[in-house]
């Protein structure tokens, strides 16, 4: 095929651009125009002066980082969210594959419905239920006790608390990922399995040789997309379950900033934190994108 000139390319692709137009316009209006709002991160913002509030440069940032406990919240955030991220891939993928291995389609569909249900419940509600179950006299400690283990202070011990958050978050959210991976699995041509079966491959071999490689692009896509959220360790969840006794390990950036609760400077400090988080996640996403592309040859975008 001969190389087309720029004008020719545009001409032959105008229909694609026409399709893109509505999305681009809407996104520009509702996502790009409001971006001027980030300047309040550099202002001593008050609502009446609006965006022409006095310029204070990096003061909101230095203020944040000079707070005695802010840096510890960054580490807590990273610890919790990196684990959530890792398990948030492994668990749904495993579950989707196992579900896919099930023979009965009816049961499979039924299970799929059940695991999505926690997604319909907000953390406020879920926290109430979990606090009952995880209490020192709650169901889980009862079970541990009857099995001869010592009871665990799931919510009150600083060393256990982050893990309680990680595991309960995975448990609540894995239905979402499972749905995505299952949808991807249905895209795999059954013929592949059939010929593998003919060749005498075991189920395990089929999973390793066919399912996982074909699922890889989706896995990488979902991982990189969730890296954008790495500094959001789950405000709703932690806010509803933590207590001063576990701030040492459980206080994350968002809960900390929320407690700052400053009526006046809230928006400015909030915007500063938002910008800080945006920067970090942008770097992470770009790095992971390049790595996936260069090292593994996956282009997700």
């Amino acid at each position: 095929m001969k190389k087309k000139s720029f004008a020719e390319t545009i001409k032959s692709q105008w229909q694609y651009y026409a399709m893109l137009l509505p999305g681009v316009v809407i996104t520009f209006i509702f996502c790009y125009i409001p971006l001027y709002g980030v300047i309040i991160a550099f202002e001593d913002y008050n609502v009446s002066a609006g965006f022409s509030s006095p310029w204070v440069g990096l003061k909101n940032f230095t203020y944040l980082f000079s707070q005695p406990t802010f840096v510890r919240t960054i580490w807590n955030t990273l610890f919790i969210s990196v684990w959530k991220l890792a398990l948030g891939v492994v668990v749904p993928v495993t579950f989707a594959i196992l579900l896919n291995e099930m023979r009965s389609n009816k049961l499979k569909r039924f299970y799929q419905t059940l695991i999505y249900i926690p997604n319909f419940l907000s953390w406020i509600i879920m926290a109430g239920v979990l606090m009952d179950i995880l209490a020192s006299d709650g169901a889980i400690n009862m079970i541990l006790h009857s099995l001869g283990f010592e009871s665990v202070n799931f919510l009150g011990s600083a060393s256990v608390f982050p893990w309680t958050m990680i595991i309960s978050d995975i448990w609540k959210g894995f239905g979402y990922g499972t749905v995505v991976y299952l949808a991807a699995l249905t895209g795999i041509d059954p013929g592949l399995y059939e010929s593998a079966y003919m060749d005498g491959a075991t189920r395990w071999q089929q999973i390793v040789k066919i399912t996982i490689p074909l699922l890889m692009p989706t896995i990488i896509l979902m991982t990189i997309l969730s890296l954008g959220n790495v500094l959001n360790a789950g405000f709703d969840q932690i806010y509803n379950m933590y207590s001063p006794a576990v701030w040492e390990t459980g206080d994350i950036i968002d809960t900390y900033v929320y407690r700052l609760g400053i009526v006046q400077a809230q928006y400015a400090v909030g915007a500063a934190v938002g910008l800080f988080k945006s920067l970090i996640s942008a770097v992470l996403v770009i790095v992971s994108y390049v790595l996936a592309d260069k090292l593994a040859g996956y282009r997700i975008l």
Binding site: G23, L35, G37, V47, A271, S281
Partner: peptide, 18 residues
Amino acid sequence: FFFITMLIGGGMIPTYLL
């Protein structure tokens, strides 16, 4: 162009004003 909007937002007030 689209992806950037996932990483950064203008916040509640500018969106409301718009």
